[in-house]
């Protein structure tokens, strides 16, 4: 799927839990699970770099993204209303590899946005998908009502114990991998979480795909700003990622 850039239109932009929103914009052509879109010109009267958002869900005519309001870009995005113009380009990035068996999905906070489409794809292809999803507090665990019906099991963690088990997603992860007979793992979340998950997966001998976030300017593979250390070199998170095999992740050039 080659990317297109379009001046699109916002279809809906609704609250999706505390400080989170779900934005739907007109888009035909679809996407693969794990791909993302760049949304640009979010500050109407001043220069702003685009922001990357995982393709959350879509149909023939639209794509949905889910975001947490944290800074300048998402602040502007949250002000958008149905009918507003929206500059979008995508679908971008490699997406997840085809799944071959039962998979464990590991999400940290808004990282769930990068895994939702994967969970749906696994459900569609009849593979078992178990979710472990952690956040600081209950309001970080967005989309539970949409997730519960599509995953075979869901375990929630909060650091403050306000919902689910108290602790982090990595608590007991090695055990879960072993007991569940998972062939693969897919994870999306903050960098320290991904590092920890990568180690656990390696020890367990489970193939892990990590969806990473990196500061990104173009999304098209030209600015070379979003480089991450992979397999002894710097790889572009936008075109060579954002999904990387954990076995090669974190190893930069010598």
């Amino acid at each position: 799927m080659t990317p297109a850039a379009r001046r699109s239109t916002v279809v809906a932009n609704e609250s999706y839990g505390h400080n989170h929103f779900k934005l739907r914009f007109e888009w035909s052509g679809g996407f693969a699970a794990g791909q993302f879109f760049m949304l640009g010109e979010l500050a109407k009267d001043s220069f702003i770099l685009p922001r990357a958002f995982s393709a959350f869900r879509g149909d023939h005519n639209s794509v949905e993204v889910v975001y947490k309001v944290v800074g300048r870009g998402t602040h502007h995005l949250a002000e958008m209303r149905a009918g507003d113009d929206l500059l979008a380009w995508g679908p971008l990035g490699n997406g997840f590899r085809e799944s071959t068996g039962p998979e464990l999905l590991v999400a940290g906070g808004i990282g769930i946005a990068g895994l939702f489409a994967r969970a749906e794809a696994l459900a569609r292809s009849g593979h078992r998908a178990a979710l472990v999803f952690g956040g600081r507090t209950e309001s970080d665990l967005v989309g539970r009502r949409d997730l519960d019906p599509i995953v075979s099991s869901a375990t929630y963690f909060t650091e403050d114990g306000s919902f689910g088990e108290k602790g982090r997603v990595t608590n007991g992860l090695a055990e879960t991998l072993k007991r569940g007979g998972f062939r693969s793992l897919a994870a999306c979340g903050p960098a320290p979480m991904l590092d920890a998950v990568a180690l656990i997966a390696r020890d367990a001998g489970v193939r892990a795909q990590l969806s990473v976030e990196a500061p990104m300017a173009c999304g098209m593979g030209v600015c070379l700003g979003c480089s991450v250390a992979v397999d002894g070199r710097y790889a572009r998170a936008c075109t060579e990622g954002p999904v990387f095999d954990a076995a090669y992740f974190g190893v930069g050039p010598r």
Partner: peptide, 17 residues
């Protein structure tokens, strides 16, 4: 190979690379 990340940052009306 280029420089180690982070390599870019947004600024007022521009970016640093």
């Amino acid at each position: 190979p280029g420089n180690a990340p982070p390599r870019i940052a947004e600024t007022a009306s521009g970016m640093l690379n």
